[in-house]
Design a protein around this nucleic acid. Sequence first.
DNA 1: CAAATTTGTTCCAATATGCGGAACAGGCAT
DNA 2: ATGCCTGTTCCGCATATTGGAACAAATTTG
Lengths: 270, 270
Amino acid sequence: MEPNIVTDQGSERPGTGTLGKAMAVLEAVAAADRPQRFTDILRSVRQPRGTLHRLLGHLVDEGLLVQRSDLSYEPGLRLLKLAYRSWSGNQFRDIAEPHLLRLHELTGETVHLGILRETEIIYVDKVESRQTVRMSSQIGKASPAYCTGIGKAALSSLPDGELERVTARMQFVPFTQRTHCSAASLLAEIEEIRREGHAFDREEHEAEICCVAAPIVVPEHELVAGISVTGPSYRVTMTQLAAWAADVRNAAAKVEEEARIRLGPGRGGR
Amino acid sequence: MEPNIVTDQGSERPGTGTLGKAMAVLEAVAAADRPQRFTDILRSVRQPRGTLHRLLGHLVDEGLLVQRSDLSYEPGLRLLKLAYRSWSGNQFRDIAEPHLLRLHELTGETVHLGILRETEIIYVDKVESRQTVRMSSQIGKASPAYCTGIGKAALSSLPDGELERVTARMQFVPFTQRTHCSAASLLAEIEEIRREGHAFDREEHEAEICCVAAPIVVPEHELVAGISVTGPSYRVTMTQLAAWAADVRNAAAKVEEEARIRLGPGRGGR
DNA sequence: CAAATTTGTTCCAATATGCGGAACAGGCAT
DNA sequence: ATGCCTGTTCCGCATATTGGAACAAATTTG
């Protein structure tokens, strides 16, 4: 598994001044699956050598990057610390959690909660089928929306204008034979998903992995998300998934309802 | 220049230019347990209003912060995404994992892996005792080193010079009655920890919670960390903890040994 | 083994960028 | 209405960023 060709949409963004450039560098390092040397980064981020060098220096000073003894860079621990609050303080995740657990008990399979962010789904919570060793892996993981159950479910609940804008930005990478390769193909399925109220992933992202998902929308908070039940193809048939669809829709609806109440009509803190 | 109360140790750091200021703001928001309004941030970060306003704007543009409809700010999802790589790509965690699992099977209690960063311990992995609902919580959480088992174990393995430098930066907050309140008190215990090879947390950070911990040091990578077994006082007696000490030391030693081999003498990438 | 290439680092003048004091505008209380 | 607190905008100043080019060291090549 090494579909890291991309850096997805991080391309045409001008970058908000200095911070933007720094973040672009950080992202470039984080997106790679191995420590990046100066020249590697130079190639992915288009910046003059001098500039990049200073940028890297600052990022290291800040603890966002760590420079190893062979001079290569990798993401620093400070990111973990910062992200912790972003996760633990996330009310939405908190609201959804019991519903995820219930769905897990019902199905016995892995349950995911993901939030749509531009063209990606970011996983914010997970209930594992059994201790699959990798405990909390994949929280924070970003996957393309067009080839995941949650992603397609989430997309299906966008108004047409938004949907068009977002799909235009996508770069369709054929992860498996069943992966959507064009916006047209994706949009066609989304029509169907809108009618049904749930989406399937038929091994479109990873071979031998499929899922059912349903969307969650909280317009007051510009929140588009989804829940899914995932399993390996050999154990979970499409028939089985279809049978769970109603339960997933149900759980999603519950979360949506509760989120609307508890997150309030736009006011939160105090 | 007065001893600015907040942001723990991030005080006398001038902040690496622009980036430094932006990160200070980000940290201030992340450190709070509720969404921060403009004025809240203004109080914790000493910056002119105009400057702060622009900084916040940039952070929001970058997705590092999110502004809610009541104008308050909270950490954005992009942090989760960035941190994911910092976690999943962490070789050290990967090496330690099986040893954590083994230790968990042996004791039946919660096992933690934490890394020392300045005056804090940052938890990078965890094996929960039973499904305590909160699944992967606390990964990325930062706790003061002086009042945690892993923290004290890690400190004990620092050379005296380093130790002194680090303890000088600490602000001793009495979380419980047993929390160390001074460097002297802490250093005295560290002497003992050095002799024993393991550290206890006797309800020093949270009431009713105690643990045994042992240090892991990989000098080649400037890595100081620790493993601990944690449990509630009513179930885990000090005698029990003492009995596990050898196992914890053992696990730590194994991790240390394996890390030295697999992380190599300073070179990693290719 | 010397020459050529690649990689990382340093320097510095030009200026774009961030800086921050102060004025402005909208609420919410009195 | 009056005052106080909030968040936002403005704009001249100067500092931090810019990026080309020279440098040094490690690596490959002839």
